[in-house]
Structures are given as structure tokens and as C-alpha cells.
């Protein structure tokens, strides 16, 4: 439950995410998608309710809290620094110091180590479009940047990875690359929450789709048994589900 003054942003939403699944969240503008995600990542504090992470009750008061708990978010704006290189961006805010006296006394960064780890992570995700990780972000294409942001989330997101509109600003090919990355994350067993307006993309990768409407969950459907038209009908209120648990 989350209210903003008199406006009810969220009113009684249950969200369940299993290991190794991609849960899609769709909903019209103002349906409470962003509010829901912000509550999960600590950007907003819910007024009531609870969040369980692997059975333990957690409560986040800032995005840093949720990151410490292993929940990583790829924001629509990506939150990357354009003038820094790929490796620096992947470790932004979590830089690693060199071992030994240089790191201890002079706080020297382990640039080589971070580059090696960044390379390994990109290879693990099968990202072949980033050959030179010393390239500055601003010299990369939209899809490449998205790949860096996803790789960063995959490096540190041990429990949950949340992707907010990852394909919104991408072309067809680049969108396919990102969807491929999401499948790889699922194969690695990391649960993913995907927020998108793009129905075809959603139906391509999501295992279940949570439909948000007027601050409530209007239903959870399976892409295998539901058509896009039905999902849109539920989203806009043209159709109502008897069993909302899908």
C-alpha cells in the first residue's frame, strides 16, 4: 500500500517471483508499475505491507539498501556515466582497490582487475558487441550501452534483477540482443522482473505476466495460454479475470 497525499498509488498488490523465472509487469500509464518497482528497490517506502526476500522480511529505505540485499535495477535512463569507460561503469560505486600497501595506504584502484572481471562477465553473458572495454560509454550505440547496464546488474544482482523498459529506445536488432540477454539471465537462474510497454517483447520472454491496473493487480497471466489482445483487454479494464492469481 502506498499513498501520495490523497492519491492512492498502490492498493494491495501481491507479487510473487520464483527462481529462474522472468516475470513481466504491464499496465497503462499511472497503473502503479513504477510505484511498485520503486517500493521493491527502496526508492520509495511503502506505507504498509511487507517484502520477503528468500523468506526473510526485508525493508529498504534507499536504493543502496536494496542493492546490498542483491537486488539490481536497470533504470530506463541506464544510470551510466558517458565519459567513463565500460569497465569503470560496470564497477561504478563499487570500485575495487588493489591488494597490498598501494591499495591500503594510497587507495589505489585495481583497474586491471576490474577490467578483467568486466570482460569475464560480458563473456559469460555472451555479449560479443563490446570488444573494447576501455571505450567510453558515449562512443557506444544504444544497444551496447543497454548491454553494459544489464551486465552491471548481472554482476552484482545475486537475488533479483529488475529491468525497466530495456527495449524502449532500441531498434529491432538491438532489442533482440537485450531479449537474448534476459534469456541468458534466466538460464543462470537469476529471477528477472521486466517492465515494458512492448507486448511482443513481453510475450517473447516472460514466463508470467503481472497486469497492473488502477493501483491493483488485475491478474497474472501466462503468455502460453493468453493472447496479447486478452492481456490488453485486462489492462484497460475491458475484460476482468475471475481468478486473479493466474
Amino acid at each position: 500500500m502506498k499513498t501520495f497525499g490523497h492519491v492512492v498509488g498502490l492498493a494491495g498488490v501481491d507479487l510473487v517471483l520464483d527462481h529462474g523465472e522472468v516475470l513481466g509487469i504491464i499496465g497503462d500509464n499511472g497503473a502503479g508499475k513504477s510505484t511498485l518497482i520503486k517500493c521493491l528497490t527502496g526508492a520509495l517506502e511503502p506505507d504498509s505491507g511487507e517484502i520477503l526476500l528468500e523468506g526473510d522480511r526485508v525493508w529498504f529505505t534507499s536504493p543502496i539498501d536494496s542493492r546490498r540485499a542483491g537486488i539490481e535495477t536497470v533504470y530506463q535512463t541506464l544510470a551510466l556515466a558517458p565519459a567513463l569507460d565500460v569497465a569503470s561503469n560496470m564497477f561504478l560505486g563499487r570500485e575495487v582497490r588493489t591488494h597490498g600497501p598501494l591499495g591500503l595506504l594510497l587507495r589505489k584502484l585495481d583497474k586491471r582487475g576490474m577490467r578483467r572481471s568486466a570482460r569475464a562477465e560480458l563473456d559469460k553473458l555472451g555479449i560479443t558487441t563490446l570488444q573494447d572495454i576501455t571505450q567510453r560509454l558515449e562512443t557506444l550505440s544504444g544497444g551496447q550501452r543497454q548491454a553494459v547496464a544489464v551486465a552491471r546488474a548481472a554482476t552484482f544482482g545475486t537475488k533479483v534483477i529488475i529491468l525497466d523498459e530495456p527495449t524502449a529506445s532500441l531498434g529491432v536488432r538491438e532489442s533482440q540482443q537485450v531479449l537474448g540477454l534476459i534469456r541468458r539471465l534466466r538460464r543462470q537462474g537469476t529471477p528477472v522482473i521486466l517492465i515494458s510497454h512492448n507486448m511482443p517483447h513481453m510475450f517473447e520472454v516472460a514466463d508470467r505476466i503481472h497486469i497492473q491496473r488502477l493501483g491493483r493487480c488485475a491478474g497474472v497471466v501466462s503468455p502460453a495460454t493468453t493472447t496479447m489482445e486478452e492481456a490488453v483487454a485486462i489492462m484497460t479494464g475491458a475484460k476482468q479475470l475471475q481468478d486473479r492469481r493466474g
Binding site: P63, R67, T73, A79, A81, P82, R94, E95, R107, K108
Partner: peptide, 21 residues
């Protein structure tokens, strides 16, 4: 150093730096 890198990140895009923790 980490502090140095954060100075660049904050100057580059303050919102991105904040979201990056």
C-alpha cells in the same frame, strides 16, 4: 582512486551517479 572516479561520475551525470549508488 575511487574518490577521483566518483568526482568524474558526479560531474558527468549526477543522477546516474546517484542511481549507481
Amino acid at each position: 582512486t575511487q574518490w577521483g572516479r566518483h568526482v568524474y561520475a558526479v560531474g558527468d551525470d549526477v543522477e546516474a551517479a546517484r542511481l549507481a549508488g
